[in-house]
Nucleic acid binder design. Structure first.
Lengths: 337, 337
DNA sequence: TTGTATGCGTTATCAC
DNA sequence: GTGATAACGCATACAA
């Protein structure tokens, strides 16, 4: 078993409180004799003393831990977000405890319960689903709390998310600007917030340009590769298929590309597309992929900022931050003349 | 503040110990009156009681937490590994606490210290660098401990890693089998274990086939995209460049592809390659990428197994598991005739 | 400048 | 069946 304060106390002949005071080193808070200081430090070193964080946390009722729940840590969006947030919190001496909800509301709920029981000082949740009732309960605990990625308007809580609506809009407007009129969309799970926003952005962009919305051009199911594959095939089977398609994110792109290849079509000669999310390999495909990139780093920094603010001023007004994604033009969209 | 045992005790008139016993429900361990049981459960429900995990952990000297340190959580290999391990540990009612070492030994050391101070029940480290001295100290604490990915032979500790040597070998042997004799390698940071193993596999495969090792064909720096880019350019500038190249992993592939494209070369007509690691987009590039896939899921499952075993039998013999990667033949290697 | 006493919330031991 | 009490390791208010 590792050394405790009392072991140092016994070894040096001082009391536990003196040892504790020396080791915590509030500069000038308590006057300690020079020699005492030195001897205790030496003894601590010799014994390889490490404070027991559990005992300390229990005593202080503070953990300097921020809990975080993400739908799927293996997705780059979230793992990168976690990394950024962890890195910045470190500067303020906060650690992060991450739970993977595995895209499952029940698991998410358990994760939150556990984090709360662990008495984390703050909580960041990237909600899995459409439901927000279980999140409402959190707001009643008064714990500094933040949602990310998906934002529930009715939920009275700080949040930082990407402007999915506008991201989709600028994507589709780019397509329109290149002369496309027949524009399809393949998107993810209906009812989830980012997805809905993107679809709405798609529709509004069309409407604003005076383009009628064609039901057949709107396909959806999930953000998975396989869905992208199936829906793209379906899209291409249409008797009057679109000349351009907007992929609403995730791995749809990957599946759709496969479908396009199977049909022996060339991008962007036969079909143009643009995707939400900018994958690392976007520049390496042939052609390179025109995309709407989410400002993940910015989102992480903002989250840390909001969290620290909420901890410092529990009664500050609720802030819902909407970050702007960025259009990155590459070669997957043809200019129609 | 949330409800404690004592709040339930006061509300029901029973003692804290009775309340504790009811709420912990060791079936049949303690006899409790039916009515008592019910009333306490009701009160707990009403008060929204959640056990304070910190207090419990302090008392029990057990956390049911496994600490894990990875070099870079934003890399898919690690985030996926974390996910798998978390998922399987959940089945045994263990949680995982993840720290990102940010590819930095100092940060890694701090993470380990912190995890130890948090009194996690077990520790899994995917070591950042070449140094293993700071890991030796862990073995002295007697905490169930496991290294992953990079394995230190001299370090007396359980480990699970991929057989990097053999993975490289089968990759290069595939190249040779397709008739290539001039085979280059672009690899990562010299001195890191997986990298060294892969280079050795490359060299042994050549030697076994009676092919002389050409110094100019061996380029290295890091697993980053930019390195791949630079080194591939350098490789192609050679007066007698190789007909095939083995990329030892990471993002080298991405950068190398860019270099190849800039030279207006076609894969695999002008140059063939195979890469360690099988990225999600491997099938989507043109041509699709022949790769050596690491069995990440298997590694995670094995890690959990070893960890549970070590916790159950602290004195079991040290086990160093080597998992076999798998060759996935696609279209980036030409058959020379 | 240092020591004593107390409590954080829980579980386990022992007594009744 | 149930309750009183101690202990986990630490930090602080108060005493000296």
């Amino acid at each position: 078993m590792s050394a405790r304060l009392i072991d140092i106390a016994r070894k040096t002949g001082f009391s536990v409180s003196t040892v504790s005071r020396v080791l915590n080193q509030r500069p000038g808070k308590y006057p300690i004799h020079e020699k005492t200081h030195k001897r205790i430090l030496e003894a601590a070193e010799e014994l390889g003393y490490r404070p027991n964080i559990i005992a300390r946390n229990l005593r202080l009722k503070k953990t300097r831990e921020i809990g975080m729940v993400v739908p799927d840590i293996s997705k780059r969006f979230f793992s990168f977000l976690v990394k950024i947030i962890a890195k910045h919190l470190r500067n303020y001496d906060y650690k992060i405890i991450v739970y993977d909800a595995d895209e499952n509301t029940t698991v998410e709920q358990e994760a939150i319960t556990d984090l709360l029981a662990k008495k984390v000082d703050g909580l960041i949740v990237c909600p899995v689903g459409v439901e927000s009732r279980h999140l409402e309960k959190i707001t009643q605990t008064n714990i500094p709390f933040l949602t990310m990625d998906r934002c529930f308007e009715k939920l009275d809580v700080d949040s930082v998310s990407v402007d999915n609506y506008n991201g989709a809009r600028i994507a589709v407007e780019h397509l329109i600007g290149q002369g496309h009129r027949k524009i399809g969309v393949i998107h993810g799970l209906p009812g989830t917030w980012p997805n809905e926003m993107r679809v709405r952005g798609y529709e509004d962009a069309l409407q604003q340009a005076g383009i009628a919305i064609e039901k057949n051009y709107n396909l959806c199911d999930s953000f998975g590769t396989f869905n992208g594959y199936l829906e793209m095939h379906q899209m291409l089977r249409l008797e009057d298929p679109p000349t351009a398609v907007f992929f609403a994110g995730g791995y749809i792109l990957l599946g759709a590309l496969k479908a396009i290849r199977e049909k022996n079509l060339t991008v962007p000669r036969h079909i143009s597309f643009i995707t939400f999310d900018d994958p690392t390999y976007a520049t390496q495909l042939t052609p390179s992929i025109t995309a709407v990139a989410q400002p993940i780093e910015e989102a992480g920094v903002m989250a840390v900022k909001l969290m620290l603010r909420r901890m410092a001023e529990p009664d500050a007004s609720i802030e819902k931050v909407l970050l702007q994604p960025q259009l990155i033009v590459r070669d997957s969209v043809a200019k129609l003349v």
